[in-house]
Design a protein around this nucleic acid. Structure first.
Lengths: 338, 338
DNA sequence: ATTAGCACTCGAACGTTGTGAGTGCTAGAG
DNA sequence: CTCTAGCACTCACAACGTTCGAGTGCTAAT
């Protein structure tokens, strides 16, 4: 009973089930997959695979379908496919004429959802260390202010803060001038202590503490992490795989973002080229019938951002992995040269 | 055959069908609705209503369900319900501690989707005429620039433009200073001609035409109209009304925005307090089984922005209309006092 | 180790039948 | 002229039984 053939059987089952969405039986395998053995032999192998928990049968007299563990084994043993040439071209043409960071992200997520025919998810790139170009402070009412930080690498961060106490126009303008003097030309790391010093120097400035805080986080690129998604309708296309009512929770989770972000972070921590989470591996009820294929882009270590595709566990893993990897690579290039 | 009773029958059919999602028959109506007549009489009325095209039967021996026209008649004759007290409180508490325009919009859309148990849609408020506070220009590479316009009412608009030709740092800084001098303190209407004059004065400035254009549209509040939506999972809850595969196109249309924006504009043009589009009235395949309840907020005439709820034609119109109106009113207050 | 053969299982598809909700119509009462 | 009672009729739907066949596990032979 060769180990190799058993793996081949598993792969054939996965591929068959993915493409037809029907349980695959021993006879069908013997006919279509070219394993050179009879259906009886395949049945034996299947029994062994079932013993290992890699495949299961939905009911007694049906064929086999892969379990989450089966998909996992399959994914770990398969090199991600080469991307089809037309898809490659699509990536180049579609992303190259983006005008704007927002535009790049938006285009990427749409592109990825089209390539994979799944729901695509793209996290906004984490900003790089770059000089502050200008801080704009606008007084709104007597105790609130708008803080805008413009960085040299063409990012604009804004936030609204409530001041420590009511301030006059004059006080406000003075502080704004001073903060600009201290800040402009510095990078986030050197800027934070400098601002703290200014803040301490004169008790008069106490009210500006929230502003300083906002400037610092703004210079770092803001605190809010965001993901955008596209292709939600692909979930309905797969509605037979999911029981139909499994797609509601997924939509909620996509809108909620927080769970999704947690998962993406976990996947980033794995530090692989392309990482895959299958069904229950996500440890989330909403995603218990869903797989996520994700890759990092635009940096390494903490600076990495993520993008990925998300769909039913019964998905074309090699193809999806190839598309995700390709878009991630291309996006890395764009973000770095921008 | 009293006209009034016939209307009552129609209303009873709508209400019954909305709450049970099953066709309602003459006998059931005679029992539950207190019309004081027998089922036979109701049958006669039903025949008349069917003649008018207001109701239909899904198959021969079934009860009646309202047609789009039936819902329309119903909606036109029903005063929108009073909002329930807990809902009223929810609006106040949920929206009052928003920190930010973005935050307001985001909270509104979530709130509305919860109140109506439908998909909620909120358009970003159209900006009001307000002074330009500062224009920040950042040179990116040799022929591109980032344009940031900060308005006195705490808006920040940014865009990236490609310059007419390569420019040096010095040229660029000069132009930036000049543009600020001309622009700051002016409102969009007075600002545009002033900038044009500056542009004409010296052929040297020709390359800056795209920048000027960006400043003008930025001051006006940008060109891109955006809507955000929330509660997409409510579509799946209603999946029995829709045939399940009708929700895909709706999701696509929501992501696409353009169709949705067109519809909202059309509805704004009707100029009613709350306007309702029912099923085929939308004139869009994607929304042919979907109703939209929308209201304007934050201004009048062209300045109005829209928000609304969107769900299957079999929807609780009075309740939805009440919620939409209430949120719109509250949002108007917030946007105006901001 | 592999294969052919065989008995067995059980879901899906199909046909039949019964049931009841709902209808339209007619004739009579107010 | 309006309403009601009564009745025959229609037809989706559920329940039930049957058949069919894909797929299995096991055994004995190669």
């Amino acid at each position: 009973m060769s180990e190799d053939r058993r793996r081949a059987v598993l792969h054939a089952i996965v591929e068959g089930y993915v493409s037809t969405s029907e349980p695959v039986g021993s006879k069908a395998l013997a006919d279509t997959a070219h394993l050179g053995v009879s259906s009886a032999t395949i049945r034996n192998d299947m029994a062994a695979l079932e013993e290992e928990g890699l495949i299961a049968q939905p009911h007694t007299s049906a064929g086999r379908i892969p379990t989450d563990a089966g998909y996992r084994r399959f994914v770990d043993h398969v090199a991600s496919a080469a991307l089809q040439a037309p898809h490659k071209r699509a990536i180049t043409t579609f992303l190259s004429d983006a005008v704007d960071l927002n535009d790049v992200v938006e285009r990427s997520v749409r592109l990825l959802s089209q390539l994979t025919r799944q729901v695509a998810v793209v996290q906004y790139p984490s900003p790089r260390e770059s000089q502050v170009r200008r801080v704009e402070l606008v007084r709104i009412g007597v105790d609130r202010a708008l803080v805008v930080v413009v960085s040299a690498d063409a990012r604009v961060e804004q936030s609204t803060v409530t001041l420590g106490r009511d301030v006059t126009e004059v006080e406000f303008e003075d502080a704004a001038r001073a903060i600009n003097e201290v800040t402009v030309g510095r990078t986030p790391t050197t800027l934070a202590p400098a601002l703290e010093v200014w803040l301490q120097r004169d008790r008069q400035h106490e009210w500006a503490a929230p502003v300083v805080e906002a400037v610092i986080t703004g210079a770092r690129g803001g605190t809010v992490e965001r993901v955008v998604f596209a292709g939600a309708s692909n979930l309905t296309r797969a509605a037979n795989d999911f029981e139909t009512d499994a797609i509601g929770p997924v939509l909620d989770a996509l809108e909620e973002q927080v769970v999704l972000l947690r998962l993406l972070h976990e996947m980033a921590a794995e530090g692989r080229d392309v990482s895959v989470r299958i069904g229950a591996e996500n440890g989330e009820d909403a995603f218990s019938r869903t797989s996520i294929v994700a890759a990092g882009y635009g940096g390494s270590g903490d600076a990495v951002s993520l993008l990925g595709a998300l769909g039913p566990t019964r998905m074309d893993y090699p193809g999806t992995m190839a598309a995700v990897r390709a878009v991630a690579r291309y996006l890395s290039r764009i973000v770095e040269t921008e």
